[in-house]
Every structure is written in structure tokens, then in C-alpha cells.
Amino acid sequence: MVERGLKCSVVNCKFNKNLLCSAGSIEVNCDDRSIRASESEETCCDTFAPWYDEEM
């Protein structure tokens, strides 16, 4: 079975559910707020919302 969904490896994001994004929608922007990126490292997920785990 192929698992579908948007992968997320940010373990302290409140939308991360078993390494998949559970947000209803996401916003991805360039790190420098321009409208062009040359590689994935120049982008960021602006939907990120921290979730704090006392065990972390």
C-alpha cells in the first residue's frame, strides 16, 4: 500500500502526525521572501506551529 500525504520531518510541529502533515492547507515561501528559489533549502514551511513536548 502506498502511503499518501505531505511528509513532514519536523517533530516539534503541532501538525506533524506520524511524519505526515495534518494541516488543512500549507503555505511554503522562499526564505528571503522573494518569489523564486533555486533549491529546496531556500524554501520554508510557514504553516509551522510549535508543539512542545516536555520529554524533548
Rank of each mutant, 00 (worst) to 15 (best):
M1E: 10
M1P: 01
V2N: 08
V2E: 04
V2I: 12
E3W: 04
E3N: 09
E3R: 07
R4S: 15
G5Y: 15
G5W: 15
G5L: 14
K7Q: 13
K7M: 07
C8M: 11
S9G: 07
S9F: 00
S9T: 07
V10S: 00
V11F: 02
V11N: 05
N12I: 13
N12S: 15
N12W: 08
N12Q: 14
C13Y: 02
C13M: 04
C13G: 03
C13W: 00
K14S: 00
F15N: 14
F15Y: 13
K17L: 13
K17Q: 13
K17C: 11
N18H: 13
L19W: 08
L20W: 15
L20T: 14
L20F: 15
L20D: 12
S22A: 01
A23L: 08
A23R: 09
G24T: 00
S25C: 07
I26Q: 09
E27F: 03
N29C: 11
C30Q: 06
D32F: 08
D32H: 10
D32R: 05
R33D: 13
R33Y: 09
R33H: 09
I35Y: 03
I35T: 13
I35M: 06
R36W: 08
A37L: 08
A37N: 03
A37S: 10
A37C: 11
E39F: 00
E39V: 08
S40K: 11
S40Q: 12
E42G: 01
T43P: 04
C44M: 02
C45D: 12
C45Y: 05
T47I: 02
F48N: 00
F48P: 04
A49P: 05
P50M: 10
P50A: 10
W51R: 11
W51H: 14
Y52C: 10
Y52G: 07
Y52S: 12
D53K: 15
D53F: 08
E54Y: 06
E54K: 09
E54F: 02
E55D: 13
E55I: 08
M56S: 07
